[in-house]
């Protein structure tokens, strides 16, 4: 459980490490968003405010940055985030079959979270795995050369 009303010591330590590299605290705001997201899964309005306070910037200014980048989640996500590459090489190699497979297995579409809170499914621009298309990423792991029949086994490894 996170105490949403303060940043944790680890979060602050990690943010401060980034701040030290830059000429002004607010320049580290993207790093700070990442750090808090790492700890909390997503960046809630409360978290946003905490970070903004810590970096001496306004909440609006921070949210302006946060909402620009697609991998900062401003809405809750599942325990695991699936990023399915929908860019050109994966398109040619049939990512749509993978998408259908995921939809069937998880009963969710892009932008949705499975009812058990396990997975959030998002489309993602090119994962740089074009020579092994189609590909997807779950959390930190990349799965290249995907076939729809592998999906079940892959998904099962994520509790």
């Amino acid at each position: 459980m996170h105490i949403d009303s303060i940043l944790s010591e680890q979060e602050i330590a990690a943010i401060e490490k980034e701040v030290a590299k830059l000429p002004m605290p607010k320049a580290a705001c993207i790093e700070a968003l990442k750090i808090v997201q790492q700890h909390r899964g997503w960046v809630s309005d409360d978290s946003l405010q905490l970070i903004a306070q810590h970096l001496q910037m306004s909440t609006a200014e921070l949210d302006s940055v946060a909402t620009f980048y697609n991998l900062i989640f401003r809405k809750p996500v599942g325990r695991h985030v699936i990023l399915l590459c929908d860019s050109i090489s994966c398109y040619v190699m049939g990512y749509e079959k993978i998408y259908e497979g995921l939809q069937r297995q998880l009963q969710i579409g892009f932008g949705e979270t499975s009812p058990d809170g396990r997975f959030t499914l998002l489309p993602n621009a090119c994962l740089g795995t074009c020579d092994h298309a189609p590909a997807l990423m779950i959390d930190q792991d990349t799965y290249p050369d995907l076939k729809p029949e592998q999906l079940e086994a892959i998904l099962n490894t994520y509790p």
Binding site: S64, T67, Y69
Partner: peptide, 9 residues
């Protein structure tokens, strides 16, 4: 001003 900004992309 601190409270008006541009959001999303």
């Amino acid at each position: 001003g601190k409270d008006l900004d541009v959001f999303a992309a």
